[in-house]
């Protein structure tokens, strides 16, 4: 297996966006790309990352391989790469390590690191295809700000989606807060658009702590998609055009 990115910045951001939620995980490498799927330790959230082979500078995977890696260790290794350095990952069949090589574009500095792989029991679990009742596309910075603002007032947020607006509400010891975002089109700047596709109205409550973890992916994508169905996990997708995506799933709070 050998994969090369032209710039380390994307991989650094991907790892930063998921490492606080999941610790040790397996990267599954096939000829179509690298992916990981992992639940957080409390089984409330699920992370799915896909990095497509066409998003790499060069990519080769002769035999499918599952590499067990501590994401904190991977973040440490990637700290040694400059944002504009190229990154090459190499793993040979049956080897217990993965190699990282960072090269500056003027080629005057090359650094190499070897990370020990871990044995991780991988369960063969899958994410079902779901038809959602409401899908909201919005700027990722808006979601990040909304979750950060409401976190000052409460631990959880109720997201209610109607035909032309979406409302985020919270309440806590010091008071209450809500943010309403109305659908708006923008043909010249699609990344600032707020689009709502509503088949059925949805209202769900989630722990803000997790949503704040998810919005760490905002630097990777100008837009985010919230897909919701009543009593069903929320899907928060950060698309990375031509590269892949990060999808987070979060179980709703259900009244006992």
């Amino acid at each position: 297996f050998e994969a090369k990115w032209d710039h380390a910045s994307t991989l650094k951001k991907v790892i930063d966006a998921v490492k606080d939620l999941i610790g040790d995980t397996s990267w599954d490498c096939t000829n179509t790309g690298m992916s990981l799927q992992s639940m957080d330790s409390s089984h409330v959230a699920l992370v799915h990352v896909l990095l497509k082979s066409e998003g790499f500078e060069s990519y080769r995977c002769d035999r499918n391989v599952s590499m067990g890696i501590s994401l904190n260790s991977m973040a440490k290794v990637l700290k040694c790469a400059g944002n504009d350095d190229s990154v090459t990952l190499r793993h040979e069949s049956e080897s217990s390590v993965v190699n990282f090589a960072f090269e500056s574009h003027k080629e005057e500095r090359v650094s190499e690191f070897e990370l020990k792989l871990m044995n991780i029991d991988t369960e063969h679990l899958g994410i079902p295809e779901t038809e959602y009742d409401s899908i909201i596309k919005m700027p990722s910075a808006d979601l990040r700000r909304t979750c950060a603002d409401l976190s000052q007032f409460g631990d959880s947020v109720t997201i209610s989606c109607a035909k032309s607006d979406v409302r985020f509400e919270t309440s806590g010891d010091i008071g209450t807060g809500n943010v309403r975002l109305s659908a708006r089109g923008s043909s010249d700047k699609p990344e600032t658009e707020i689009a709502i596709e509503m088949i059925n109205p949805v209202s769900l409550t989630f722990a803000l702590k997790y949503l704040n973890f998810f919005t760490k992916a905002a630097p990777l994508s100008d837009t985010v998609k919230l897909c919701m169905s009543n009593n069903h996990p929320l899907c928060v997708e950060f698309p990375m055009p031509e590269v892949g995506y990060i999808r987070y799933y979060l179980a709703p709070k259900i009244d006992e």
Partner: peptide, 14 residues
């Protein structure tokens, strides 16, 4: 425990 059940039911064995 309830969240866990929702997520465990969603994320199923294949």
């Amino acid at each position: 425990a309830i969240f866990q059940k929702v997520m465990d039911d969603f994320y199923v064995a294949i």
